[in-house]
Design a protein around this nucleic acid. Sequence first.
DNA 1: TTGTATGCGTTATCAG
DNA 2: CTGATAACGCATACAA
Lengths: 344, 344
Amino acid sequence: MRRATITDVAREAGVSPSTASVVFSGKTPVSAQTRERVLAAAASLGYTGPDPRAASLRRGRSGIVGVVFRDRLGTVFRDPVTTVMMDGLADAVGHLGAGLLLLRDDGSGGEPALNSAPVDAVVLLGWSAGMLASLATVRARGLPVVVIEGDAGEGVPQILLDNREGEALIARHLRDLGHREVVTLTLPLDSRRRAGWADPTTAVAVDVTRDRLAGVRDVFPGARAYASVGSLVDEGYAAGTAILARHPRPTAIIAQSDLLATGVLRAARDAGLRVPEDVSITGFDGISTDGTAPRILTTMVQPAAEKGRAAGAAIAAMLAGQDAPTIRLTSTFRRGDTTGAVPA
Amino acid sequence: MRRATITDVAREAGVSPSTASVVFSGKTPVSAQTRERVLAAAASLGYTGPDPRAASLRRGRSGIVGVVFRDRLGTVFRDPVTTVMMDGLADAVGHLGAGLLLLRDDGSGGEPALNSAPVDAVVLLGWSAGMLASLATVRARGLPVVVIEGDAGEGVPQILLDNREGEALIARHLRDLGHREVVTLTLPLDSRRRAGWADPTTAVAVDVTRDRLAGVRDVFPGARAYASVGSLVDEGYAAGTAILARHPRPTAIIAQSDLLATGVLRAARDAGLRVPEDVSITGFDGISTDGTAPRILTTMVQPAAEKGRAAGAAIAAMLAGQDAPTIRLTSTFRRGDTTGAVPA
DNA sequence: TTGTATGCGTTATCAG
DNA sequence: CTGATAACGCATACAA
C-alpha cells in the first residue's frame, strides 16, 4: 500500500489538490471549515505533510546549506572554535528554515558528494588546495558560496578575522610589560604538519598561521617560531616543554591558540616555572577556557559564533539575489592572569 | 537564461533524454561514441549533471541521513566521544553515498525541521523527553530510525554500550588494589543539571549516568556520588576540589568521563596530593587523552567511532528493507598510571 | 476563497 | 545498446 499523497487527501476531503496544498503551506487564506476537513482527511489517511523531495523540486529550493570540510569530522570538531562557529551558522540558517549538510572534501578524487547533494548554498570552511576542486564544483553548479577564513578570489564573499592585528595587539601587551625574549608557538604551517622550530624564511601556506605570525613579527621582528602539529593541549605541552628548554629561555610564549596555550601552561608548571612570574603565556580564541582553571588565560577573544552567523547572513543575502560583501570581524583583548612583568 | 536540463543536453547531442540520463547514471551500458557526444553536449551547455532535487524525487531517495541532537551544536560537539562517533557515522553513510544533515530538536515546539527535511533515515542521538517528539515525527513519516545510547522502545534498533559492566570492571580494579573509600563523579543526572552530592535514593533520568553509577554500586554498594553539571575539564576540577575536601578523604575517585577525570587530576595536584600515591583516579571513554600528559589515565576505552559505524550499518540495512538488530558494543579496560594501591 | 491546468527535471520500465 | 512513455508529488499562476 503506497503512502498517501496530497491528491489523496484532497479527494478524501472533497477539495482540490491546490486547496489542500495551501492548507499545509499557509501561503493563501483558507476558510476554517475547509482547513478542518483537509486536516481530518490527512489524519485519517496518515498523511504527515508534503513530501520534502517533491516540494523542493517544485520550489527550486531544498532548504539545505552544505558545509564543506577538508578534514575528518573528528578532527575538525576537535577545535572548539569550529564547533562554536558551526553553532552560529546553524542558528543563522535555522532562522532561514534551513539545515546544515556535512560534506567532506577528501581530495581523494572520488566523486565528490558535493556534486549530487541537494544544497541551496555552500559554506567552505578553512582553506587548502583541495578546496579549489570544491569551489569549481560549486561555481559550475551556480550555487551561492561563502568562504570562512580563506581566500577564494574573484567575488566570493569571505568571513575574515583580524588575525594579524589581533596577534600584534597581544604582542604589544607583552612588549609593554618589558618582554623582549619571546617565542611564538604556531598552528600548523602547511598540510605536511611538521613540529619544530620554523625557518623564518619559508613561506607559510596556512592563512591563519601566516597572519598571526606576521602580527607577532610586527612587534617582535626577530621572534622565533615553533610550529605545532595541531591545535591540541598535549601538542602545546610537548612544544612548550621544548621551547622552555631552549637557552636563553624565553620570558614569554605567544601561542596561536588557547588549546596550545593551555598545554604550554602545563609544561611551564611541570618545568617548575611559575606563571606569570617566570614566564608569561598568551593564547588566541577565547572560546575554550576549559582546562586552565583556576587560571585565566590572557588571550584574544574571537567572535566565533558571529563568524557562523555572518556566513549565514551572507548566504541569506545571496539566496535573495543580492550579493554579499566580505566581512571582517575583530577579536578583543582579554587580560587574564597568565601574563606579567618580565622577570628581573 | 535558464539552466540547461538533461533534455537540452539530449537534444544537443541528438539522443533521447533517457540515453543522456544513463550516460550520467551509468546504470546501463552506453556506447563510447554516444557517451562522447552527450558529454560534449553537456560541456558546451554548461550542464554539470542531474539536478539532485529532481533526481531525488524520481528515485525516492535523497541520499541524506538526518542526525537529531537535543542540544546546541556547540554543546554537543564539545564532547569528544560524540565527535568521534559522528566521524564514524559520516564514514558509514558516506560509504553509502549519503551525507549527514544536522537537525536540532529544541523542544521549543516550533515546527521541527525534521518534518520537512528530505532525509532517507534518521539517527537520534542521546535520549531525552524531547526526543519523543522527534521519534513520533519520524515514525509518522515512516522513516528508518536508529537510536544511539537511548531506548526508544518498540522495535527501534539501538546502539548501546556496556556502561554498567564497564564501570563495574574499573571499580573492581580499584577494589583489587585495596580501595574501599571510593567516590564516583557522575555525568549530569537529569536535564536540570545541578552539581553536588547526590541523594542515593533518587532515580537518575539519564541512561548513561544511571548505568555507570549502577556499575560502581555493583562493586561498592555504598559509594557516594557527586553529580557534575557536564562533561568538562573545569567541571571535574571544581567537583574534584569539593570531593577531595571531604572527610574522610576518598582514596579513589571514579569519574564517569575522561574530561571529568582530567579535571580531578588537576584538582588533586593543586590540593598537593600525588596521583596515584595519595589518590587514584579513573575516567571513562578513552578518547580524549588530550590534556592529561604526561600522565595516562586509567579508563574504559569505548569504541566511539564504531558506534557511529554501527548506526550507519543499521541504517543501510533498514534502507535495504531488512530490519536491523540492536547492537551492544563493549568497552575495554586500559590501565594507565593514575591508579595504584590504596595508601597505607 | 477555491479550483484548473501545468510543469519542476529526472529516471524506471519496457519495447525495439 | 537506444528510445518512447509515464510517472515521482507537489506548488504556483490564473481563472472562476
